[in-house]
Nucleic acid binder design. Structure first.
Lengths: 172, 172
DNA sequence: GTCTATACCCCGATAGAC
DNA sequence: GTCTATCGGGGTATAGAC
């Protein structure tokens, strides 16, 4: 799904790729394609949340952490030829009409923003400013990842990291 | 396509919505769905380019122009219940495997970045910095638009405009 | 639990009458 | 140019043997 989106990815294809049979897939995901997608979104929410937390814990400032995150994303995307992106972004725009899917994507974004906002508050930024900055940090990373995939190059992510660090620097 | 993405939008549905018959659609778009999508992307490239240019011409600074753009996007999205977003973003992630589609989306993004970069240079920013800032401006607007659609609220776009103005202000 | 076969539907695309 | 009918294929989901 992170490669072709929600509608473009068939369950038969997923089963083949996972070396499972179609019957097994429906045995473990009785809710069908939608349940599979919701599971994938929840998994991605956790996975990228951990990258965010790890970067924020390792680096000396939130700004430096966002630069590190952007670089990590660029390296990850480059490794498979810029094909596998963020499954939340990829599915979100196709499923805006489905409340369950839209809310799951919204929860993932909100979770990531919460991690960033908490780190900013710990770094001395006011609560209201931190919440606002978290919106822009996550949105810019998502947009830059999309741009990097379309261009098949890391530049958009690298400059996004740099500019986010600069922006956060004006608040500390 | 800006509502459900590329794969989720059938040609039959498009024909019905346009009060045309399937035969007419294929008469005017012999290349089928792909040609239709490429036409839609080119149209969107022009349309949003004009919004960018108009904002940059009217406002007193590039930063103020980006705030105006973000507000205009939020108003546009709110008008139809946050359903119709950017067709380039919506199709890009589904069609990364098709070079023609990927390059068309890349051209749209590059065109928009060029408009922003030119305005920044005219405002006194160095060429290299302007090109980099344009990446972040367009990526942040795309990401914020996606976030706003998922949340069904304008906040992500409003704060993106504010932060972009602040970021650009540190370069002028 | 795992598998095959299949029901049922809608997809993109085309053919050919008018 | 406009329309209807249809083709071939793939989609999701289910039934039922093992």
């Amino acid at each position: 799904m992170q490669r072709q989106g929600y509608e473009g990815t068939g369950i038969k294809l997923i089963a083949r790729e996972a070396k499972a049979t179609l019957g097994s897939v429906y045995h473990f995901f009785p809710g069908g394609k939608k349940e599979l997608a919701l599971t994938a979104i929840a998994f991605s929410e956790k996975e990228f949340g951990e990258l965010l937390s790890a970067s924020l814990a390792q680096e000396s400032s939130p700004g430096a952490a966002m630069e590190a995150c952007a670089r990590a994303l660029a390296d990850y995307l480059a490794a498979d030829g810029w094909a596998d992106g963020c499954p939340v972004t990829a599915t979100a725009l196709e499923t805006l009409g489905d409340d369950d899917m839209r809310e799951a994507c919204g929860r993932a974004f909100a979770h990531w923003r919460g991690i960033v906002a908490d780190a900013l508050v710990k770094g001395g930024v006011g609560k209201a400013d931190a919440a606002e900055l978290a919106y822009t940090v996550i949105a810019a990373l998502e947009g830059a990842e999309l741009t990097a995939q379309v261009a098949r190059g890391p530049e958009a992510l690298h400059v996004a990291g740099k500019h986010l660090a600069r922006l956060l620097g004006t608040y500390a």
